[in-house]
Design a protein around this nucleic acid. Structure first.
Length: 297
DNA sequence: GTCCAGTCAT
DNA sequence: ATGACTGGAC
């Protein structure tokens, strides 16, 4: 069979947009008409967290706090409680802080431009662009780890993305973006889904990939397919991170302040307990009522 | 065990 | 550039 050819930069978008139109996973957010506040909350929740775990939590949050001002009116600890076990609870704290800033400085409406969004706490390059594009339909590149992998393979012919670098990644995505705003947003969403569902890190499903015929990596015969290096993630079991999680869990499941002794029970190693406790206090995830009593903020 | 849709502080 | 930050799924 003939070798596939390498994609021209304007070939990719229509293939991805057409594929996305048919095979898009049914994500309630990242669709036209979804409220910008919902998009902001969902993108926060999706940072480091699989979509299946986000869906029920997003639903609860938006029912309880349909507008930023609704969340801003609550103590931050309620956000941490409602975060439940999504992990990285500082995201809940940041989201509450976002709600306060949006209410106080942006008249209660999520800002629509990338620079204003970047000024919000916990909003970085990815989230700012995701909200501008998916909530407001602006034409910007949105680059996440999935998109970096798809570009690395389909365009550059590499087996995987190198370390993130906005100076390189954003122009690379811009070069592929259709001129039309709506098409650009769909292309962005489609590239994410393609990376998440088809062009996966471990076992890409090239048989069903809309880019198979133009993919540079495939055209080159899948060089270095075995590379799969492991940067060796640290053990979670027994870590300080696990200790933090255990302490927050006790606070979350208690209606009010908790004596230190009850928090200490959640961690077996005393030195680890004090490290985790001071870390949480420093992060503002925990406040001391007095020497012996702690609560969510 | 291994993986993972980001942000921020070193 | 590197590492801290979490918890569940496979």
């Amino acid at each position: 069979m003939p070798l596939p050819s390498i994609a021209r930069s304007d070939e990719l978008a229509p293939l991805v947009v057409d594929w996305f139109a048919v095979h898009a996973r049914d994500l309630p957010w990242r669709r036209p008409g979804f409220p910008p506040w919902g998009t902001l909350v969902s993108e926060f929740m999706l940072q480091q967290t699989p979509v299946v775990r986000v869906i029920p939590r997003l639903d609860e949050w938006l029912t309880r706090w349909p507008e930023p001002a609704d969340l801003a009116a609550e103590p931050a600890g309620e956000a941490v409680r409602a975060w439940q076990s999504l992990g990285y609870p500082r995201r809940a704290l940041n989201l509450h802080a976002c709600a306060v800033v949006i209410t106080e400085r942006f008249g209660g409406a999520v800002p629509n431009d990338v620079d204003a969004l970047l000024s919000l706490p916990g909003v970085g390059d990815y989230t700012a662009r995701a909200v501008a594009v998916f909530a407001f339909g602006s034409r910007h590149p949105v680059v996440d780890t999935n998109i970096r992998r798809v570009i690395a393979r389909a365009v550059d012919g590499h087996p995987d993305a190198s370390t993130p670098n906005a100076k390189r990644d954003l122009p690379a995505m811009t070069a592929l973006l259709p001129a039309d705003d709506t098409a650009a947003a769909r292309f962005n969403a489609g590239m994410m889904e393609l990376g998440a569902l088809i062009c996966t890190a471990r076992s890409p499903k090239c048989e069903v990939c809309p880019l198979a015929n133009v993919c540079a990596w495939r055209a080159a015969g899948y060089p270095d397919v075995e590379i799969t290096r492991k940067p060796k993630q640290k053990k979670y079991e027994g870590s300080d991170r696990q200790a933090r999680g255990a302490i927050i869990r006790v606070l979350r499941e208690s209606p009010g302040p908790v004596p230190a002794a009850r928090l200490a029970e959640a961690v077996t190693e005393p030195a680890q307990y004090s490290r985790a406790l001071s870390g949480l206090l420093a992060d503002g995830l925990l406040v001391a009522i007095d020497d012996d009593l702690f609560a969510l903020p």
